[in-house]
Design a protein around this nucleic acid. Sequence first.
DNA 1: AGCGTTATTTGACCTCGATCAAGAAGTATG
DNA 2: CATACTTCTTGATCGAGGTCAAATAACGCT
Lengths: 253, 253
Amino acid sequence: MTQDKVISFSSIKIDCKSCNLTTLCLPLGLESAEIGRLEEIIKRSRPLHRGDQLFHAEQGFHSLYVIKTGSVKTFLPEPDGGEQVLGFHLPGEVIGMDGIESERYHCSAKVLETSAVCEVPFDRLEALTHDIPSLQHQLYRLMSKEIGQETDMLALLGSKSAEERLAAFVLGLSERFKRRGFSATDFHLSMSRHDIGSYLGLAVETISRLFSRFQEEGLLKVERKHLQLTNLAGLQAMAKGCGLEPRRQKHGG
Amino acid sequence: MTQDKVISFSSIKIDCKSCNLTTLCLPLGLESAEIGRLEEIIKRSRPLHRGDQLFHAEQGFHSLYVIKTGSVKTFLPEPDGGEQVLGFHLPGEVIGMDGIESERYHCSAKVLETSAVCEVPFDRLEALTHDIPSLQHQLYRLMSKEIGQETDMLALLGSKSAEERLAAFVLGLSERFKRRGFSATDFHLSMSRHDIGSYLGLAVETISRLFSRFQEEGLLKVERKHLQLTNLAGLQAMAKGCGLEPRRQKHGG
DNA sequence: AGCGTTATTTGACCTCGATCAAGAAGTATG
DNA sequence: CATACTTCTTGATCGAGGTCAAATAACGCT
């Protein structure tokens, strides 16, 4: 960030080389000249605000988006107006890759807090990956990673109890903040309890109750949207289902 | 094994051009000469049998695999020896793409019935995608499709009831068989009830009970592994949660 | 500051689907 | 073809987590 304004424009329009996300984002593994070529095709928007939508499911696909600052949720809109949340995305993460196949976005993306986002027109990126093998490789890697992460989520939803899910969720966020240079034990939840519930396949009330219980058990402290993890080991044990008592069921039994 | 065996080698070693999967598989959109180049790098194995494992989670990644005939399940092995099933794969489908990112397979793959599989060494494929833009594009599309399908599965697990899940599962299989030229209403389940349950996040007993109930309701007929769909519209309504009574809950409440 | 709207929390209650249990049916092996 | 094993089915029971309801706390707005 720079001098005067709350969110200065210059902080948004910095180039990839000065962006501290090169170890996560598309430029990973590129040489300086190659990053320069990538920059030429990237559109940097003015800051977006809570609720702004990056793209809509079924809308024609043309760009990938990279979160630069802030956070974004992706979700599948439901006929009844609901939203099945698919993921929460932090700086350096690329979204929209599900639109390549059908040339329509498969899901929708909404900004959770004031955020800066880079738009990468896909046809130009694709052409560039043809010229720059390491960029091609990085794009394959990013898509592969996405597949692996969704796979892990399927396993979570398929076989973990509510408390295991929430513990894993909180630890996952912690890891991701840590890798971005933020505190791993003290952070802000930009999404609502409702969104967390949808993401984890649980009711809002369950999320609320579990946060309260985790707090009673000394695993963490919650105050509104602020979260402080006070017992990482305990949370890890809980996420693995190694609760002290020999739990045995996923739910309902 | 060679000529004289039950499954003749010639049926396995046919090339991509004579394979009737070109509209699903990697060659989609390629010209004849390009398919020729792709063929050069593909390894065609002898037929595999039920239980044979294509790759193991955590094992070093080097190839994608394409199912040519038969079927394969992918799963995440669990510490207790269990298997969290991630998908069932039919002819023309590519698996192993989750290994690109970390250079280790993220999941395991096991053959469900006698199957033929093409092995595609990834480094050679990647090099070829650099030479053949339409192959590059097709690989992006295949990975994107995988992401979209997992996304749909997340939504299924996150918000559908047991009957909705099973109905959707059965209809999904139906669609995929149809596209491959098989009957959409009459097919063989190569996976166990246990695998179906794991895939859908349900207990084996629930699968069994639901199949029985669907049969009573005239939606389908099951006999062991043979399935006959007798009321597609009814199943579709059920999959959408438009059961006649206004169901309201995902489960348990 | 005051007010309506929305998000979160907590309690009471109830159901779906898990677990436990046992039998039936199919499969593999000698 | 008898035996052991595995898979599938069906029944009985129960509890995790959903739904309903209501109070409380934040968060816009004007």
